[in-house]
Design a protein around this nucleic acid. Sequence first.
RNA 1: CUCUCCGUAGCUCAGCUGGUAGAGCAAAUGACUCUUAAUCAUUGGGCCAUAGGUUCGAAUCCUAUCGGGGAGACCA
Length: 577
Amino acid sequence: MNPELSEQEAIRRESLKELEKLGINAYPAEAYEVNISTSEIHKNFPTDSTLYQDISIAGRIMTRRIMGAASFVDLQDSSGRIQLYIKRDDICPGEDKTLYNTVFKRLLDIGDIIGVTGFVFITQMGEISIHVKSLKLLSKSLRVLPVVKEKDDQVFDAFSDPEARYRQRYVDLIVNPEIRDVFVKRSRIINTMRAFFNEKGYLEVETPILQPIPGGAAARPFITHHNALDMPLYLRVADELYLKKLIVGGFDGVYEFAKDFRNEGMDRTHNPEFTVLEIYVAYKDYFWMMEFTETMLERVAMSLHNQTTVQVGDRSIDFKSPFRRLTMSDAIMQYAGIDINGKSEDDLRLICKELGVETNPAMGKGKLIDAIFGEKCEEHLVQPTFIMDYPIEMSPLCKRHRSNPELTERFELFVNGKELCNAYSELNDPIDQLDRFQDQLNLSQKGDDEAMFIDMDFVRALEYGMPTCSGMGIGIDRLTMFMTNQPSIQDVLFFPQMRPEKKAPPAGDTDDAFVAIGVPEAWVPALRKYGFKTVVELKAANPNKLLNDLGGLRKKMKLDIPALKLEEIQAWVNSEK
RNA sequence: CUCUCCGUAGCUCAGCUGGUAGAGCAAAUGACUCUUAAUCAUUGGGCCAUAGGUUCGAAUCCUAUCGGGGAGACCA
């Protein structure tokens, strides 16, 4: 037995052995028939108590209340919980009461997965329960589950440490079942959107994640290496360019739910990998896309909540379309009191200084305007608001505004002070596109490490001709945060990125050092457990005391290794090494 | 990257201005045939994150490191 195990873990492994001796396989291979779920029982039994008189159900033991020859167990399946009533003489009708007395009471634990058959009834206390007629172990749990108790909606001893919850999401999901709901909703959000797109006849597609040029967005990429081709590849930061190539190829509408990767900071709204929906529709412009987007979001909200208002923190946000529309310069006028129209780069730099907005020399006109906007306006955009008509420098893939060549036909949707969507009338003029890429290159040389790479194949595709087109991207993680009222991106990702767990290296000498003076390898962990971290410490010990203490330890820990003799221990202590 | 708080039993947490650890749940043993945070009795369970330092003495004070939360910086 491994002395690293906690007492309770060791006991569970012992139980496993005892089950084996009783001829019970703790991990049986055969399927177990499940013909009902806990939620169906709770839903239908109150109105028709003749139902469910012969059922078979499986789940995890969450709590037990044992009262001698009868017990109550809370069984949890994927849909909820139900109480089991287990009576000794019902599951052990004959003389042999082993199944109840030994297997159920002693060898089963909280966390084990079992299957039961029986009938549904209501206890004297009024709780819908299953009267168990047979019980089968389906999987033994060797780790101790946190026990979360609840009474009158008050939760006791909640499993709440964020680190443990995110690292061991499986435990979180078992003991905090309300967490599941967020992920069920996340799935529904995606399904609602997918249905919306499919109804319109748009095609769901897949494009490369490994890209030779990480195009489509201004962001620092992850880089990797392909051995056979001996070349670098980047993890995509966006799928925009590939999807537009498909529009060139003749599809009227394409979309992709894509994992994107950005090698940037992590915080409450940023995970290194995240999910984005991008959709491109031919022969449309950004006005059309605004209507499309607000219709889509209204539909998502309705599908989740049966209403358009959604509670986000202490605010109520209404996704009822149409959303407010505001140009960027009007927003800055309204919230910062500054008219940016016709201002030069130097003027803007001065304005930033007056407003206390930080700048650096690498910032062009577009970034300066964006800085003012970010600092002064975003926080005010609580209800869904389209911000339109961005400066041209910030939007190298976006069509020039039809009435002002300094601007682009771009909008972003802000909700609760955060950006949620980004959309354009897509640039389809190949010559303009190449020029704009060239400008990005200049920015890059000026020190902007996020400026976009030039993708010549994309330019070539545009040279064949891309129809007018509008595209939109929306962060699915952020959308889920809003729609489920979660404050952190980690709460809408099953497995948020974490630093790897590091086991503290065992302090003191290595195993080999102990073995070198004659200590049997199997005894080394026991010695560590006992407190000897180095050979020097061990050799300073009294052999007689050691013999006694280690013998006691062996018994206590139920160590399956040969007992020690005094001569052996004396040999360690007297060893020359 | 900066600031700040945190890391004690399987889980949730006490542990004051230093004197080598406590509770509840969980576990073990026993009692109990309708309980539900079941109850009652007894018992076991800890490298107090890691490494240094101060001290006669450190879970406690100091420094560094690791991991995490929060705020900011950067960033879509």
